[in-house]
Write a protein that binds this DNA or RNA. Structure first.
Length: 270
DNA sequence: CTCTTAACCTGGACGC
DNA sequence: TGCGTCCAGGTTAAGA
């Protein structure tokens, strides 16, 4: 269930159990995730202390003096800190054993997640072309407006393009466009500066709010608890096709845009 | 460049 | 109960 808020919530959950701790051993059960796990992970990580756990887009970085492990959760991935003797289950693909007697365990039925390696001082190719973090000062409506000039693809696909801005996944894209009052299928190049300003604010508000909510339900990563609190209760349009708009009562519509299901209110969004 | 499409993989929900 | 079909929160690669 990972969009940016879920990844950030995961980061906050696992960081206290990793930071300042030594990784004693790396156990790889399946190397065929989204990409093969490079040999450097098993060669260089054991014996290293994790200096910090950071996030870039939807990637988590476990930073050590020898380089950084680069973790992605894909569509169905989950990271938990568990007692080291916790029985292994079917989709548990790798473990990082810690000096605390615990283990960081990655579980991912669909195996779209990944575990990669970034040497010291380098930026992994997958991170090189990414757009700004949505919650940073580098992101605003002006950036969206400038980068969208001449673009004919849907504004929804545009904001989900990680080269434009990172971290806006399928759910939050629909939600942010609703809040900004913009039809998702509108051509990106035909959205005004003013409306991009509103969209940037909506993205920031929604992501920040979701992180806040995720934090309340996922704070304790020793007691695995999957469900982010943001879902269902607070979604305005996502997954609500055929239901009444919470603002105006009009029936919420849906359509596939850029291969992803998209939801909107035909009255509140123009 | 921009844009579209296929592909990676499994499990759960649903219809018959 | 079983089976076929469709769908799912991400992202890259290839081709037009």
């Amino acid at each position: 269930m990972p969009e940016l808020p879920e990844v950030e919530t995961t980061r906050r959950g696992i960081a206290p159990h990793l930071t300042g701790h030594r990784i004693e051993r790396v156990v790889l059960r399946r190397a065929d995730l989204r990409w093969p796990i490079p040999a450097a992970v098993a060669e260089r990580l054991p014996g290293r202390v994790v200096d910090s756990v950071s996030r870039r887009a939807k990637y988590l970085l476990l930073e050590t003096g020898a380089g950084s492990a680069l973790l992605h959760l894909g569509m169905s991935g989950m990271l938990r800190v568990l007692p080291a003797d916790t029985p292994v289950e079917r989709h548990d693909h790798y473990d990082l054993l810690l000096d605390s007697g615990r283990v960081l365990r990655f579980t991912d039925p669909r195996r779209f997640g990944s575990l990669l390696w970034q040497p010291p001082g380098q930026t992994h190719a997958l991170l090189a072309g990414l757009g700004p973090e949505p919650l940073s000062d580098a992101f605003d409506g002006e950036l969206l407006w400038q980068r969208s000039r001449g673009r004919r693809s849907a504004v929804k696909s545009f904001v989900m393009d990680q080269r434009v801005v990172v971290g806006v996944g399928n759910i939050y894209a629909s939600e942010a466009l609703f809040e900004a009052g913009i039809l998702p299928q509108r051509a990106a190049g035909r959205v005004s500066r003013t409306r991009y300003a509103a969209l940037a604010r909506a993205i920031q508000r929604i992501l920040a709010h979701a992180i806040q909510r995720g934090g309340t339900t996922l704070r304790d990563f020793l007691a695995p608890d999957g469900a982010p609190g943001y879902f269902e209760q607070e979604l305005m349009v996502y997954g609500r096709a055929g239901d009444a708009c919470r603002r105006c009562g009009t029936t919420i519509r849906s359509r596939v845009i850029g291969q992803r299901n998209t939801f909107w209110c035909p009255v509140c969004q123009r």
